[in-house]
Every structure is written in structure tokens, then in C-alpha cells.
């Protein structure tokens, strides 16, 4: 009987396991092979490379910039997104007039594809005819003679990319956090108000601790999405100008498909996965391990 059940289970899992095995796990192994072997131009291994492909990355003068950008992009977008997302969630949860419409409109950036959002932002940032400059002109924040081409210079380009990253991430964050807020039983809120806890104290000692697991989950998902994000940067700047707005993921794509540097791409891919794994473990440990920031017993 038991045995028959296990056989049924294996049969049920087979299609998913087959697809995942061929299209996810095999490519993982193949990526490791690319990273640790020398490759000929068609991508066949010609000999063990050890760590050479990784040490070559350190010799690449651009790679430092790429890693630095990845750090700024991930930390910047995730931090601002979490703060704004929580603010919007609390705002919606206080149910001011019009909050239902706002919540519905908030879904737009989440639902539409990153591709189309990024194309639209690229058009809005057009120097001569874009809506951003038009807005700055009509608010008199900028003289009409100034028509900055935002995406043509590395620094403003990267700053705008971060803005777009935040714009696409906040809706998901706010809506999931709001769902978390709604799941807090209302008698707990009322008990808090009766105890005289108000505003910030209420948030700090009641709401946030109860929300901890939702906040951690959302932060973790955001970190993975943002770190792995490709379309926004590829569509807005393709990593340019002068390769100054690349993050590891876009740089990996360029190495693989523009330069055909398979080994270098494999090494970056391996590195990104290790980094992501470490970040995830740190976030989980910080949140659920000892010495946790928001643990209920800690009182400031």
C-alpha cells in the first residue's frame, strides 16, 4: 500500500521533475562547466581552468564598476522600496477617502511587463520631447533652454534606472505588506490603543513585530528580483553609456552574447548565484536567528 503510494507520487512528480531537470538543473551544471573550464568558440570545453576564469574577472578594469553598481542598485532599490512600500501599505490600511482607487492604480506598474514600463520611461526621459523635461519646464524647476538627455550620461542614467527600479517594486511590496497588515487581528490594535500606545510606538512595538515574517519574506523576494533584474537596464541603456550602468546580470549577458566570452559569462553567473545565496542566508539569519532587530523582547 505504502509502496504503491510512493509509485503514484513519483509518477505525479515526473513531468515537473523532467522539465526542471532538463531546463533548470542541467543548465546549472553547464554554467558551472563554463565557469571552471576553458571553452572553444562554439562552447565546447577544452581543458580544466580552475579559478582562472574568476581571477581574469578581477583583471577586467570594468568589473569593479559593475560590482559597485550591483551593490548600489540592489541595496538602494530594496531599501527605498521597503520604506516606501511600508509607508504606502500603512497609508492604504488607514483607509482614507479614495484608497480603493489608489490601490487599483498601484497595480498598474506591477502588472505591466518590465519591458513596456522601461520603454515608456525611456521615452519619458527623452531630452528634447520627453515628459520629464516637459514637466520640469512647466514647474519652472529648469529653464526651457536646458534639455538634459538623461540617459546619455552615466550618472544621471544610473540614477534614473534606480528610480524606475523603485517605481516597479513599490506596488508589489506595498500590496503584500498591506495584506499582512490586514491579517493582524483588530483586537490587538484596539488593545494597543487602549494601553495608550500611539503613532510611532504603536508601529514600532505592535505592528512591526507582528509583521516580521511578512516583512522578511517581501524583503527577501525583492532582493532576489532586484539583484536578478535585467530588462530595465537592458532596455533603458544596455549598460551604457561606456558600460557605466551595468550590473552583474546585464554585464553577464553582454559577455555571453555580445562578446561571446563564454567562460567569463559562466564565472559571473556562478558568482551571482553564490552572492545571492549568501545574501538570502544573511537576511534569513538576521531575521529569524538570535540578536534579531525586531524581536519582541527588545525594548528601546
Amino acid at each position: 500500500m505504502r509502496r504503491k503510494e510512493a509509485v503514484t507520487a513519483i509518477l505525479c512528480l515526473l513531468p515537473a521533475a523532467f522539465l526542471g531537470g532538463v531546463l533548470i538543473f542541467y543548465p546549472i551544471l553547464r554554467t558551472l562547466e563554463l565557469a571552471f573550464f576553458h571553452m572553444d568558440p562554439v562552447g565546447r570545453p577544452t581543458g580544466f581552468a580552475g579559478w582562472t576564469n574568476f581571477t581574469n574577472l578581477l583583471k577586467d578594469p570594468l568589473f569593479g564598476r559593475v560590482v559597485f553598481n550591483t551593490l548600489i542598485w540592489t541595496v538602494g532599490v530594496v531599501t527605498v522600496t521597503m520604506v516606501l512600500g511600508m509607508a504606502v501599505a500603512l497609508l492604504l490600511n488607514s483607509r482614507p477617502p479614495g484608497y480603493r482607487i489608489a490601490r487599483l492604480l498601484l497595480l498598474l506598474p506591477w502588472a505591466s511587463s518590465l519591458t513596456i514600463s522601461a520603454i515608456t520611461w525611456r521615452w519619458m526621459l527623452n531630452g528634447q520631447y520627453g515628459a520629464i523635461n516637459q514637466l520640469l519646464h512647466s514647474l519652472h524647476l529648469m529653464p526651457t533652454t536646458a534639455q538634459p538627455e538623461w540617459l546619455a550620461l552615466p550618472r544621471p542614467a544610473f540614477e534614473w534606472i534606480i528610480v524606475v527600479g523603485i517605481w516597479v517594486s513599490v506596488p508589489f511590496t506595498a500590496i503584500v505588506l498591506q495584506a499582512g497588515l490586514q491579517s493582524i487581528p483588530s483586537d490587538i490594535h484596539e488593545a494597543g490603543w487602549l494601553d495608550g500606545a500611539s503613532g510611532w510606538k504603536h508601529l514600532r512595538h505592535l505592528t512591526l513585530p507582528m509583521m516580521k515574517s511578512v516583512v522578511v519574506t517581501v524583503a527577501l523576494l525583492n532582493t532576489i528580483y532586484v539583484f536578478n533584474s535585467f530588462p530595465i537596464i537592458w532596455i533603458m541603456t544596455r549598460g551604457g553609456p561606456m558600460d557605466q550602468t551595468h550590473i552583474m546580470i546585464t554585464y553577464l549577458y553582454k559577455q555571453a552574447f555580445t562578446l561571446s566570452e563564454y567562460s567569463s559569462a559562466g564565472a559571473i553567473a556562478t558568482l551571482t548565484f553564490i552572492i545571492l545565496l549568501v545574501i538570502s542566508l544573511i537576511i534569513l539569519r538576521l531575521s529569524f536567528g538570535r540578536g534579531s532587530l525586531a524581536s519582541g523582547d527588545e525594548r528601546a
Partner: peptide
């Protein structure tokens, strides 16, 4: 269904979520 290694499978499913398609796209290509 009851069977051995269920927990392991659930974890494997979650880990695949962490891979950006871009990380694997070269090997997939």
C-alpha cells in the same frame, strides 16, 4: 501523498526560484 524526500523536493523547488533566467540563459542557449 506520503513519500520520502518530500521536504527535499519542496526545498529544491524553492531554490530554482532564486535563479535569474539571465544566469542560466547562456547554458540554455
Amino acid at each position: 501523498l506520503q513519500f520520502g524526500g518530500k521536504k527535499w523536493i519542496l526545498q529544491a523547488v524553492l531554490v530554482t526560484q532564486m535563479f535569474s533566467p539571465v544566469v542560466l540563459v547562456l547554458a540554455l542557449y
